[in-house]
Design a protein around this nucleic acid. Structure first.
Lengths: 148, 148
DNA sequence: ACTATTCCTATCAGATTACTAGGAGATAAA
DNA sequence: TTTATCTCCTAGTAATCTGATAGGAATAGT
């Protein structure tokens, strides 16, 4: 039950984009990669996912780059993580009723379902803007989590 | 972010053990495997983990089998899942401070840490006994016709 | 002794992960 | 128009993880 690099790198890249990009000036993928210490080629692949999911806009050619399609305070972490890690269902039978024949009598399915909902709910309550803001504050002074 | 078969099978096996075993009569691994529709050989491996973690006792030889080391209402799901899936930390840097140099300024780490704690908290609030109980109630509503 | 059980190690095919390589297409600046 | 940067796309690949399977040793009741 681990988050892969796709999810970890992707989230950091999105925060980077929210921090360094504006609504009209795109950010180079190479700059994000450098700042975040991620392989450029690999990050390219991750941005492919984010792009196809409609979370970022891409401008090709010279002076191109990426920018957010929406304002950072309307993008939740749930959207980002779902794109990069798949739906928050911890087991397939929660989203796919045909995955197991014992669906209506299985008590573990209820547990996984409940747990998945909790994660989803927590992620829906966090916006990209709040993280970017906190990241800026954090690099200045170290503020405890509960001030978010 | 998925639970593997080790976690899924293992939890179901523990519920089975809590349901069919008593404090002195062990349950055959083969019976659990049959009831739960799991490969016997694979389940053997899973019980190895549970055994080494001290969650189940093993009786070798004829009339042997497995039983819980403690009462089912003192065993939380958190213990079981931790043994089978590893600690609930979604990323390594939460438990291992040397995993990343940006630890004290990284805002995503706080998110993963918070999320992991939520999962852990939820799993700690559920006992094996409560699940076994619920499983029994759930199957009673679904008794085949020929038993009436 | 015989049989039924747990226990242990080793093996293995297939899937996934985390990249890397190379080039095609787009666009602004020269 | 050419060139220098950019994104975009497909393919490949080594390492690791998953989900088993195989065979036999240890143990204990009959």
């Amino acid at each position: 039950m681990k988050i892969s690099t796709k999810g970890r790198y992707g989230l950091r890249a999105m925060i980077d984009l929210a921090t360094y990009g504006t609504s009209d000036t795109p950010v180079y993928l190479s700059d994000i990669a450098k700042r975040q210490g991620i392989s450029e080629k690999y990050l390219e692949h991750i941005f492919g996912l984010l792009h196809r999911a409609g979370l970022v806009k891409a401008l090709r050619g010279r002076k191109g780059g990426y920018l957010l399609t929406r304002l950072a305070d309307t993008i939740t972490l749930d959207e980002i993580i779902t794109v990069l890690e798949g739906p928050c269902s911890l087991v397939d039978c929660v989203t796919d009723a045909t995955a197991c024949p014992k669906i209506d009598t299985c008590v573990t399915r209820e547990i996984w379902s409940m747990l998945g909902s909790k994660i989803e709910e927590a992620l829906k309550g966090l916006t990209l803007a709040s993280l970017a803001e906190r990241q800026i504050q954090k690099t200045q002074h170290d503020i405890p989590m509960y001030y978010i």
